[in-house]
Design a protein around this nucleic acid. Structure first.
Lengths: 119, 119
DNA sequence: CAGGATCCGGATTGATACTG
DNA sequence: CAGTATCAATCCGGATCCTG
């Protein structure tokens, strides 16, 4: 029984930790944006092209939130015509492994589906 | 420049792979549910308690989607009074590493915030 | 170019009540 | 117990227009 309780507590802690992560990275786009900036720094309009499907309004909101959480850095390169560069922060780099794990699973899942083994 | 293009392509592929994963695991709760069932099989009402904050309606919808995708297994134990047990499938187990990576980052992030280094 | 303001319809959620 | 049905509230994202 003690063993069971230990397992149950572990489970609860894990879920809390997952929630902590999801509070920061939740939503449809943040992980993609982080993964993108892990490859190289980018301008606003470049991210807009890379992260297919995101709208301008949503992108600027997501970038703002990521910046507030210290995961990315916003740097104004030039005023009139304005140019802004976004890059990953040192802290944001701690998410690189996570993004790769997620991408790996997606690749494997695609194979899995193609082979028709999912059913 | 060729090097740059390679990097850009890698980036695009990574983002597509992330989208593939997110199509399956997207949303606020699915990862928590999977993590939960990686610890042990559970009844509907147990999951409801473990995954704090989720409503019954949303839980049953999420469970249905996870089952359709082959990640979890639904087993009726008993009719009247009905009892249902959910468990992780072999395929779902391939997500265990992912859930642990996410939980790890959440734990570290909590430390990071506590130490006030996030600003 | 970067991104804010506004409008708007559709998706998502929570509460509550109900069923086999 | 394990859900389903329903309604109201809300959250979104998209499109469009506007600014420095």
């Amino acid at each position: 029984m003690e063993q069971d309780e230990t397992i149950q507590n572990e489970c609860g802690k894990t879920i809390m930790a997952i929630n902590d992560t999801m509070d920061i990275l939740g939503g449809k786009w943040k992980i993609s944006i982080i993964a993108c900036l892990c490859y190289s720094s980018m301008r606003y309009s470049e991210i807009l092209k890379k992260v297919r499907g995101i709208s301008g309004k949503v992108l600027s909101r997501e970038l703002k939130e990521l910046e507030i959480n210290g995961l990315i850095i916003r740097k104004v390169l030039n005023e009139g015509p304005i140019a802004v560069e976004y890059s990953i922060s040192d802290y944001g780099k701690s998410l690189k492994e996570l993004t790769l794990t997620i991408a790996d699973w997606g690749l494997n899942h695609r194979q899995f589906v193609i082979k028709g083994m999912a059913k």
